[in-house]
């Protein structure tokens, strides 16, 4: 009995801890700017004021568009490449594959500050400086280790007998991929796409260094700039934060199971 009470007390306190910030964001976003004072932070709005969202939408719609374009393109490209790489590493181990794989994986843990300076120059030199395509290239390349890892672990579960059967039927490397492996890959793709979508949407360091012109900014950079300004009323950053959070939040709420699988795959062992 005491155990039960303790259990629900812990759950109650933890829920407060996780949801209080959400409550604060929502009530602040719905308050009139003049009604936002520090001492009345926690009170519900007297009048529910929708104008902040309209303003945040006008300011952020182009940045959201940038983020969607960037995120979807880079996610699809890195997922496709990851699928092919994972297929190779799981089923067609070439000599040296066991050395190459850890070297690939290391790329997903490095602090990007250690590559940022040459990367910045490189992207500028190939003519993609400041553009979204430069950012897409960077996200595809640095996304390869994790997408390859997830697909490799996923394809390792496909029995070798199925591959063997395909070969006996006369299918080669590409035939086995397109007829046997790819059709089985849907859950793998869901995990990888959700993971990459969340990561790229939320990313900030590359976005803030590689994209200089405001027209190409993804949402994270725009939000950081808006909230970082000094004399800003808090209704706008809060409405903006909600807009920026919504796509990944919806993905999490509706496809949470796959999100957690990606999360656990990030700690290397499947």
């Amino acid at each position: 009995m005491i155990g039960r009470i303790l259990q629900y007390t812990v759950l109650f306190i933890a829920t407060l801890f996780f949801l209080l910030p959400v409550y604060l964001v929502i009530v602040t976003a719905f308050k009139e700017p003049s009604a936002i004072t520090l001492s009345s932070t926690w009170q519900l709005p007297q009048v529910w004021y929708w104008e902040s969202f309209a303003q945040a939408w006008t300011a952020f719609a182009p940045k959201l568009q940038n983020s969607f374009f960037l995120t979807i393109t880079a996610t699809i490209l890195s997922a496709l490449l990851g699928s092919l790489n994972g297929y190779v590493l799981a089923k067609w181990k070439f000599p040296g594959a066991n050395i190459v794989f850890p070297l690939m994986l290391f790329g997903m843990f490095i602090p990007y500050q250690a590559v940022l300076i040459p990367l910045f120059q490189f992207v500028r030199e190939i003519g993609l400086g400041g553009s979204l395509w430069g950012l897409i290239l960077v996200h595809v390349v640095y996304g390869l280790p994790i997408t390859t890892l997830i697909f490799r672990n996923y394809y390792a579960e496909i029995p070798d007998e199925m591959i063997e059967a395909g070969r006996i039927d006369g299918a080669g490397f590409f035939g086995i991929y397109s007829r046997i492996v790819f059709p089985l890959s849907v859950p793998g793709f869901v995990v990888v796409i959700i993971w990459q979508f969340t990561q790229i949407w939320n990313e900030f360091l590359f976005a803030v260094t590689l994209v200089s012109s405001p027209a190409n900014q993804p949402i994270t950079v725009a939000l950081a700039q808006l909230a970082g300004g000094e004399a800003v009323k808090w209704n706008l950053p809060m409405a903006g934060a909600l807009l920026a959070a919504l796509p990944t939040l919806l993905v999490y709420i509706f496809l949470g199971r796959y999100f957690i699988r990606g999360l656990l795959a990030g700690s290397v062992k499947g």
Partner: peptide, 25 residues
Amino acid sequence: IFLFPMSLSFIVTGTIWRWMLQPEG
């Protein structure tokens, strides 16, 4: 509930908590 913050950007979290931790509010 306990896992949802994982899906947010650190920028969103930072913006929210910056407001949570205003010294007078």
